[in-house]
Every structure is written in C-alpha cells, then in structure tokens.
Simulated assay, not measured.
Amino acid sequence: MRILLIGEFSRLHNSLKEGLELLGHEVCIVANGDGFKNYPVDLSTRAKWFETKIGIFFKKLLYKTIGFDVLKLEFGIRFYFHLNKLKNYDVVQLINEAPIQTIPWLERYLLKKIFHQNKDAYLLCCGVDYLVAKHLVEKKERYSIMNPYFENKNLYVEYKFIYDFLSKNHKKTHDLVYKNIKGVYASDIDYVNPIKNEKKIIGLLPNPINADKIKFIDLKIDGTIKIFLGINSSTYNTKGIVFFEKALEVVSKKYEDKIEIIIAQNLPYQEYIKLYDSSHIVLDQVYAFDQGYNALEAMAKGKVVFTGAEKEFENYYNLQDEVAINALPDVDYLVTTLSYLIENPTKITEIGIRSRKFIEKEHDYRFIAEKYLKTWG
C-alpha cells in the first residue's frame, strides 16, 4: 500500500511511518517541519525565502502593516511544486483540516488536487480544528486550554488562532475536507468528544510511539532529583506553564538541596530531548485529559510526567495504578504532589517503570500501525 501523510506537528507521522514501513508499506511525509522543531520529512515545504534576514524583515513588515503572514503563502507554493509527486496513493492522511498551513483559498485549492489525484483520504483529529475550536469556546469540558483566555481577555493575541478556525473562511476548508474524507479519528481522549457526533467518526487511534528508538532510562536517585520544564513561547498559556513555574518557585526553596530544576525554552526537537534525558520528572501541561506526544515520549523513557491523566483516560485504558501524574491548574496541588515525590523517591522509580510498560502495551508503533491499516481497509 502507498500511503501519503500530510503535515507533522509532533513526530506522530514519523512514528506512524516507521511502523507502516516495518509492515511493508511505502510511506511519504510532506510537511514544513513545524518551525523551530524541524521534524524530519520526505518532501519539505519549509519556508526558505522568508527565513533569510531580508525575508524575515519583509515578513514582519507585511504582518505589521496589513496582517498578512507571507510565510504561509510560501508553504503553499512549495507544496504546489510537489503536487506531481503526490499522486496515486492508496491512502492520504491529513494531520489537521489545514495540514499545509497556507492561506485558506490556496489550502483548499491544494487539498482539492490531493483528493482528486489519490484514492482514499482520512482526517486525524489531534489538535485544534473547526470542531475542536467550537467545542472549546462553548465550554463543553470542565476545563480546557481556553481557561486562561476566559479569565483574561487580554490574551486574545495568543488565542486568536483558535478563533481563526471558527472563521467563515476556515469553515469552507472544514466543509471541503469532511466532504472528501472517508473517516475521521482522534489521537487521544481530548479530541474524541469534539468529533463524537460526526457521521464519519471512526473512534480513537492512539498516538504511535517508536519505543525501539527511545531508550528506557533507569531512574536511579543519587541524592538529587532533577525536574524538567520545557517551554514553547507560543503555547505558554495553553499549556498552563505559569502554574508549573509558580510551583517550582515553592519547591525550589523548600527542597533547595534535594532538587535540580532544568528549564528549556524554544529549542529544536533534538536539543529539547537531550536536555530532559537526565531528568526524573517532566512537567508537560495542565489543561489536558490525556497525554500529547511529548508526554508519551517522556513516559517511554521512564520519566514521571505531569500531564493529562484524568479519570476518562484511566477508565479507557482500565488502569489501576498511575502511569503519569494528572496535572491540574492548581499551584497548591502541584506543590503537594511534587513534594510527595521528592520525599518518596521510590515512587518516582515505580511510576517510571509503569510508564514505560504502558507505552509498550498501548502505544507501540507497530501495534498502532496495524490499527491504522485495519481502519483503512
């Protein structure tokens, strides 16, 4: 089977590709690498003209004067030049309703070409799109990444991208995609509810993790417990980083001689991974019910991860013991939980071992690739 994967935001498509290839299928990823993260792709749409010094100046000038992001235009143009190579695939998977990340009319033009010159298309719901944005702004969950904006409307600039998915222009893209796909599925529990009423819903296909490439690191505590916090400026509020920062302020004073805090900001994927390798505890996000990709990779290494691990997640996987710490937007709770782990380091080791076993059982990339193949028929 020939499979085309469009878009890459987390390494999800790379791990899926590795699983599919092991099962004997031909796979191509076309994407822009997602900015500073620079994920591997087969056909790149990464901007080159507007990442030079002159290009960046011109890009900023255009955005400041008329609000036009010329970088998106370049993504679309570079995708257009790949179109002849993107033909006759048995399956096309979109990682998002707008996976090319270009301007709306060009996104639709290019997607029409993709639908026309290939066989079956599917949509993966693993981030914000029209239905997810609608679900979020209507406050359908007890908490969400929208909480900071609901509490402080001055954060609109950071949350504008969510409202962009609700615009009439994007709704046209949403309608086009749903008209042409055979099915839609969610990558984790956070995205099941937003799409549950869609006629074409298939269900949940968990994130694939290539644990063969991720070495389990035995969490030996030699006196110093290392806590890692990775910060991406663009998701500072949506991930609730401020709660982690405030909690770290408290525990750093409380356990000054027992812990080391490592903070990394806006690093490429490979550098980010190297920095947290030596840590015992990873602080990921507070506004989630299930784990995203970064959390799952850290769990595969045997880290204790503060992330989404709500009752809905535990019930779905029928878990009796913690495989991750359910992080909440509550500083006192985070301080209490971190303190317990620092004072009981054997718990860190126990949770780390369970985390790895959970990934191997529920997220193995070969096992998940087989699920995808059954879904595609």
Rank of each mutant, 00 (worst) to 15 (best):
M1V: 12
M1A: 07
R2P: 04
R2C: 12
I3V: 13
I3S: 09
L4T: 08
L4F: 04
I6S: 04
I6N: 02
G7Y: 04
G7L: 01
E8H: 06
E8F: 04
E8S: 03
E8M: 07
F9Q: 05
F9Y: 06
R11Y: 14
R11C: 15
R11T: 02
L12F: 11
H13V: 12
H13L: 00
H13R: 06
H13D: 12
N14F: 01
N14L: 01
S15P: 11
L16N: 08
L16A: 03
L16E: 12
L16K: 03
L16V: 10
K17C: 13
K17I: 10
E18C: 11
G19N: 06
G19T: 09
G19K: 10
L20G: 03
L20H: 04
L20S: 06
E21C: 02
L22Y: 13
L22P: 14
L23G: 03
L23H: 10
L23W: 04
L23R: 06
L23C: 02
G24N: 12
G24P: 05
G24R: 13
E26R: 15
E26Q: 13
E26M: 09
V27I: 06
V27L: 08
V27M: 09
C28P: 14
C28T: 15
I29H: 04
A31T: 01
N32S: 04
N32C: 02
N32F: 05
N32V: 02
G33W: 05
D34F: 00
D34C: 00
D34S: 00
G35L: 02
G35C: 07
K37L: 03
K37N: 06
N38I: 00
Y39W: 06
Y39M: 02
P40T: 01
P40Y: 00
V41T: 08
V41H: 06
V41Q: 08
V41Y: 01
V41W: 07
D42G: 08
D42P: 15
D42L: 09
D42R: 08
D42S: 14
L43H: 10
L43P: 10
L43W: 07
S44Y: 02
S44M: 05
S44I: 02
S44C: 03
T45G: 09
T45R: 04
T45L: 04
R46S: 12
R46E: 12
R46H: 14
R46M: 08
A47F: 03
A47I: 00
A47M: 01
K48Y: 08
K48E: 15
K48W: 13
W49C: 09
W49G: 10
W49Q: 13
W49F: 09
F50W: 06
F50I: 05
F50C: 05
F50M: 03
E51S: 12
T52C: 00
T52A: 06
K53I: 07
K53S: 11
K53C: 08
K53E: 11
K53R: 12
I54P: 13
I54T: 14
I54N: 15
I54C: 11
G55M: 00
I56K: 15
I56P: 14
I56Q: 15
I56A: 02
F57I: 14
F57Y: 15
K59Q: 11
K59P: 12
K59Y: 11
K59S: 11
K59A: 08
K60D: 14
